[in-house]
Amino acid sequence: MDNKKLTEENEFGELKKLLHDLPKVKAPDNFEFNLMTRIENENFQMNSGKKKKGFFSWALTPAIAFAVTVFFILFTFTGNEDLDDNPWQTPPKLIEQTTNVSAGKTLVATDVSKKGKESNKIVRIKSVNNGSYATASVPKQLPFDKSSSVDLDDYLGNNSATSNNGAAQLASSTSRLVVSPFDGFFLREVVKAREQDSLKNKTDSTSN
């Protein structure tokens, strides 16, 4: 009996020595101060077990699992019916405005207001199909009467012939000598607001 006991003691002798020799961990220096402060303030709320309590609770696990499953099923089985509407397979929108136009009408762009600079621009219809979407670049509105002017871009593109604008002929045209109220060419200025502002600022600063 005694021999068995001795064997057991020797079996773990080294281990016991190793454990016994472990350095002793001490409480922090401010332990007693913090404790007595808690007692004086009657702050008896337990610190352990209530720390790091986040939003997540295990009680919510079934509800979360159900929601995820429903979302997955809906996304999987209803997403394939119309691939065009699938946001993952639709190419991103171009910066150019996309407007819905009807024949013979000029519409003010609806989403122009997103960019303040383009807020007063008018969409010019290049190709018109009933009920179709047309993508058009937005030129600046010219400050003169349309009936007495011609769009040089359109003219050079042979669009002037089809135009129903009676005055849409160049003054230099030799085929027909028609006296028209043509105002002349309009030089389209590219407005560089930043440059203008900087120049203005410079002028102001030198004048002061």
């Binding site: 961990v25 001490k26 409480a27 922090p28 404790l35 008896f44 610190n47 352990s48 720390k51």
Partner: peptide, 27 residues
């Protein structure tokens, strides 16, 4: 405080948690 701290630390392996537990023990 020190013997309890040593005991709890060896059991949990986390010094901050051990300090809290020993504080709570004293409370």
């Amino acid at each position: 405080k020190d013997p309890l701290m040593n005991f709890v630390y060896r059991f949990l392996g986390d010094r901050d948690a051990s300090t809290d537990i020993v504080q709570d023990t004293m409370i």
